[in-house]
Every structure is written in C-alpha cells, then in structure tokens.
Design a protein around this nucleic acid. Structure first.
Lengths: 246, 246
DNA sequence: CGTGCATTTGAGAAGAATCAATGCCCGTGG
DNA sequence: CCACGGGCATTGATTCTTCTCAAATGCACG
C-alpha cells in the first residue's frame, strides 16, 4: 500500500487507535488510475467494492429514464465512493472521473470484516454516512427551494470548505475542474444558465474566475446569497461506543 | 412497553435474533402522543434522542434562512426519526406531526449501547441509513431534473409502496393526510402548482381523489410519467457481518 | 352559522429552459 | 508552423414551466 493515504475522513468523528488505522490501511487494493471521463463503476452493476479516492475529483451521478442526469455528489480526495449502493442489489450511481484520478478499491468483504470486528470503526462509518445524509438533505433544500444563484454560491462555498479541510485549497482560490454542464447536472440547472449565473457572480464581484480557477472574493456576501446552513458536527459521539450516559 | 411495536424496519436487511429483538423492544421509552402540528423536535436543538414512529405521519423539514421550508422526508409508522442529526451538535431537521402521532423516544445512549454490543444490529442500522441516503439521492434527482407532474407521481408511488410494505394501504387507495402546501414543500413546488398538477392527474384518469383519499388508477402510466427508479435491496448482506468472501 | 384553514381558479410575471450562433482554447496532423 | 476539429464557454432571442398575487369557494368544527 502507498503511504500518505488521505485517511482524514475515517477519523472525522472518532479518533481511531493504531490497530484500527493499520487495518484501514490494509483495506484497500493497490491504487488504480483512471483518465478523465473514466468510469469507475456504472449504475446497475452489482456493487462488489467501494473506493477510496486518493487524488482527483469524482462525480457520483444518477441517470433518469429520460436521459437526464443528476450528479448527487462531487467527491474530493479522501472520500469513500460508492458506499450508498452497499445496501442495493444493483448500484444506484455511476462513478465518473471528473479529472484524472487515482483510487484504491476496497472489497465489501474487507470492509465488512473490519466493521464487524471493530465497534469503533463501525461507529465512525455510521456517523460518516449520517453526515453524508445531512449534506444530501441540505442539497435537496437548495435545489428544491433556492434560486440558481444561491445554488451556485452554495456549491462554491461547499467546495472551498471541503478542499480546505483536505488541505487542497490555497488562499488564492482553487481549481474547479468541472464543466458548466456538470455543474448544471449537480445543481439542477442547464449549462447555459450556469454560465449566466457565473457572469452575475463575477459582475457583482463576488468571485473572480480565470479559466477553471475560482477565487471567492466576498465570502460574507456569498454566504448570504447562498442560504447555506453551517453544520457543526457532534463533539462527543462517545455514546455510540456504549460509553455515553445510557 | 407496548406490544405490537412496528419493528419491521429494524430487520429489513438482516434477520435479528431473539436477543436483539428483545433489546430493540427495550430501547424505547413509553409511547408519547402528539397532536397534529405538534413538534417532536425542533432544528437547532441538541439531539439527545431518536424516535420510533408508532402511528401517524411525521414530516422532517429543514428551514432555510429566507423562511422557505424543505420537507426532506415524510415518515410513516415504523420509521426511525431524527437519526441523521446524530452526527451533529444541533439537529438539522424539525420533526413535525402531520397527523396525530404516537412515538417512542429512544435515548442516544440506549441506541449506542446496543449498536456497540450487537454487530448485527449495527450492520442492520448501517444499511438502513444507506438506504435512506439512496432515497434522498433519488429525490434529489427528481427535484433537480424532473417536471412537477413527474415529482407528484413519484411521491404517490413512493407512498403507496411504503404504506403497502407497512401493511397500511388497501387496494382502494390510501389516505394522504398532508396539505398541498406540505406536498409542495416536499417536492420543491408551490401549493398552487401542486393543486394544478393534481387536477392534471385526475383529468388524465391517472388517479382519483376524494378529499384526502388517493387512489392510483393507472400504475403503469404513473410509473412512466414519474421517471422513478425501482431499487432492489441487497439479498446477501452477510459480508457486513464478517461472513462474506473477504 | 361564523371562523379559519385549505383548496381552487384566474391573470400576469419571472426565472430558467431551449434553440441557435459564435468564439475560444488546445491538441493533432499535415 | 499552421490549418483543422472537438469540446466548452458565451451570448442572444424566444419559449415555457412554474411562481406570485389575488380572490373566491368549500369544508370542518366549535
């Protein structure tokens, strides 16, 4: 296994011991690379693995019968991909490389073995999935109830925050290696309209744009147009280990 | 504790042994009733419990800064409520009684104790949450990428299916104790437009409506306008217990 | 038999989609 | 070195779905 795996997401809720961390390192297969537009897994396939994203961006998308696409999550390095389909006979989402990516496959059996043997790992994963669910709830609220400009602003803030957490964003903005069509598929808009909204944001001096590089110029105003909630994660999840005030 | 608790959701993925089922029965506090419009828990509060819905319907909603509301889930009897906020310092969603309801509160500590001591229960809950996440993905796709009529059709089909699974729907339709405004908040539409869409569905003989009673007249056509995916859950989640082909 | 919530209907406005061109960047091959 | 082509981005003109505002109706409940 490679060293320097981005494992920050595994311990975001609970610190894990050395044994658990070693087990996590041993979970994944050797890294595999995919080019941009490569497909890690197609929806409809029987899910046999999940994936740890080592580098690059991956979009998880659902296809509708009419051919429309909804990108349900933009994954950044460190994310675990494909976990939602663990409960299904056939995967719900397609995993698309938005950039060249490197991933480590994790067989479901390996994941399950660790889940069954380490309550701490199980609790950690359980909370992570709940966190993903909250993110999805917030996105549903944004798509269902906010304007195009609010959705774009929320996306930019979300990416900025997540890239920072993963140590991938500088102070001078970040690369956003995603086409406007993909942004549209993520936000429930057309590519044309995404373009117009970006123009609005630039004209209003909320952001600056240079090719795919985005700089957030006015965080306060962006936050206010985005209607985005800030969610603080629990500080004391000990109760999930049986320690809590039961 | 009351007998005849609706516990079907606990074992939807994995059969649980007698000991686990007994422990689950012991999880909840004595039932509490709320009137229609009652609030089980408000967003922003520190989450200290989850809730098992014994009877009635509950809406879980997120409030946006502008006052708009998104109902992220319509809960039916047997559902576990408020679990997504387990990972947060302050609850993300408000739990609103859509009808008079009866719920049993479950302290997080009790849940955590069982989660930590029974890998089978933990695995079961983990898969249930993933299933909720998939449902949310599908709804995001519907709200982001389908027309108003498709969303309403999808909602009706979803409710019909879930009520059937809980043994609460007859062949002559079902009661839908929800205002058109609430339906709008669930689907990202206005109440006015929900009304117009219902008219369309009735005029097209897709459904019949009598006060709040809904009858699905033409399932095939409803399915085709709804653009809704059918999701089969995994038949063999044994790998999550460490049994799988690791 | 009011009173209040919910539904229904109409008219007009608005936000976003659609359709259609054009332009730009960049890699490729002559 | 430059012409060519493909994928994206950009912009304009127009259409359409859905929202907004407003008013009337209907139904349940005290």
């Amino acid at each position: 296994m490679v060293d320097r795996l981005p494992l920050h997401r595994f311990a975001e809720f609970l610190p894990l011991g050395d044994a658990d961390m070693r087990a996590i390192r041993a979970l994944g297969e050797p890294p595999v690379d995919y080019p941009r537009h490569g497909v890690l897994r197609r929806e409809g396939e029987a899910p046999r693995h999940i994936y740890l994203l080592l580098s690059g961006w991956v979009g998880a998308s659902v296809l509708l019968p009419g051919g429309e696409r909804q990108i349900v999550k933009i994954h950044l390095p460190g994310d675990l991909l494909g976990t939602s389909s663990m409960c299904l006979a056939r995967a719900a989402d397609t995993l698309n490389a938005l950039t060249p990516v490197s991933v480590s496959r994790i067989p479901l059996g390996a994941f399950g073995a660790l889940f069954a043997s380490s309550p701490r790992f199980a609790a950690s994963m359980f909370l992570s999935v709940q966190r993903e669910r909250v993110a999805l709830m917030d996105r549903l609220a944004a798509v269902g109830r906010t304007s195009a400009i609010a959705r774009v602003a929320a996306l930019l803030l979300d990416l900025d925050e997540r890239l920072r957490a993963a140590g991938l964003a500088g102070d001078d903005g970040f690369e956003m290696p995603v086409t406007q069509e993909q942004i549209g598929d993520h936000l429930g808009l057309t590519a044309v309209h995404v373009n117009r909204v970006f123009r609005q944001l630039v004209d209003g001096a909320l952001i600056a744009r240079n090719r795919q590089r985005i700089e957030l110029l006015d965080l306060a105003r962006l936050r206010s147009v985005s209607a985005r909630q800030v969610r603080a994660t629990t500080q004391d999840p000990g109760w999930l280990l049986g320690n809590g005030a039961a």
